[in-house]
Design a protein around this nucleic acid. Sequence first.
DNA 1: CGGGAAGTTGAAGAGCGTCAAAAGTAGTGG
DNA 2: CCACTACTTTTGACGCTCTTCAACTTCCCG
Lengths: 239, 239
Amino acid sequence: MRETQPSRVVLGSPCEACPVRPFSICSDLTIDELADLERIATKITVNAGAPIFDEGELAAHRYNVTNGCARIYKLLGDGRRQIIGFLFPGDFLGLANGEMYAYGAEAIANCDLCRFSRRKLEDLVFRLPALKTRLFGVASNELAIAQDQILLLGRKRAKEKVATMLLMFSKRAERRNMSDNPVFLPMIREDIGDYLGLTTETVSRIITQLKTKGVIRLEVGNNVRLLDIDALVAMSEGF
Amino acid sequence: MRETQPSRVVLGSPCEACPVRPFSICSDLTIDELADLERIATKITVNAGAPIFDEGELAAHRYNVTNGCARIYKLLGDGRRQIIGFLFPGDFLGLANGEMYAYGAEAIANCDLCRFSRRKLEDLVFRLPALKTRLFGVASNELAIAQDQILLLGRKRAKEKVATMLLMFSKRAERRNMSDNPVFLPMIREDIGDYLGLTTETVSRIITQLKTKGVIRLEVGNNVRLLDIDALVAMSEGF
DNA sequence: CGGGAAGTTGAAGAGCGTCAAAAGTAGTGG
DNA sequence: CCACTACTTTTGACGCTCTTCAACTTCCCG
């Protein structure tokens, strides 16, 4: 797999050199503040497929993804799953949770994370206004993304959903200085289905349609080449 | 209509006496801080059905609902609408918006709102840590609600959606010290449909089913009496 | 080369949407 | 006070999108 390479951030190395810092909660901190944050951080690794935490568990920690990819999800009583979001390097994990985690989190590819004790992080947020501002910004941004997802799930058709997702992941990668075309999609069809409110089969059928029409091309390593972005944009809005 | 009575908060009256303050962004402020906030607030009224702001408009203001009920929504190119949420007294309006409003807002019943210039509010948030903390809390809470809605829209069936909504509105009313049973639902079937990702007709059919089974009873003034809450809870989880 | 997971494809069916019409409700003005 | 109108809600018949179930193929990785 793509993410199984050893973490580029060596245990104990200074956060200053962290490649995902510009995209993380620690981006706007001074060197001293960053040191404060680093003091309460523990580097952990979670293997592909393994849980980071479970829904309903006591929310003792918050995390920051530094490498790999993860999914957060909610389950219904009979096993139906809804994936709330995918996390990539730089993403914060554990917002919107009270005493208990309101969703579960699992590594999709091998994950490196900075783990913070929730209490210690809250103490630090209280002391560092820049950190509080940053977390507020992250929460606002997540909220806007969630609202887009609500529109997608409530009112878009299968083809529109898939097109929207491809464009979304492309834009997101661009903002992180990663490849926006081809788009890297490390998750399996079932994950995509559970994210878009569809079944595996429907996702597969739509992707086949897009391939046949020459709108996308599947490349090696879970990469999707967007061949006709205008068509995708039109599709994502239902035209 | 129920909300057409004149606002109980007279123009220029002190926020100290505001009945929705315990549930609003101003709840944790000192008397002096509250005065600072009041200084930048303008009381406005919006009639039922009228827009508060439109999607894509320059986001010059933030609001706090003090009376009435509003909806926030997103539109697709062909007119399909997704209602993101309903706002009741105490709710903050304008989070998760950048330079432009990412959604439109309309009054459902006649609305009284505190309007804040976005810039002035941001200045104040910068100066008052208690206000920043409160807004962060609101954002986190909204995010958790949005994630529940994502589960609902992506993975629940029509009957489960309606049952979930009834319980959700009941719990929400309880937290605001309003009647949790019967539940007050001021919005029309079309709004409920656009909120749950359903059509007016499907919502009507489900409500008829619930009535027939003796789970709910419609009462005067858009009130819904929950007769069998256990059945609703079971239904909302798909059992 | 082999086995299990992931992906694809087909056929049939269910749930919800669409279209249409009737019944109920509220606000308006004579 | 009632008739008129417009909106909302309900109900029915039908159809479509997506799901379900099943079989088959492809892709990995040991």
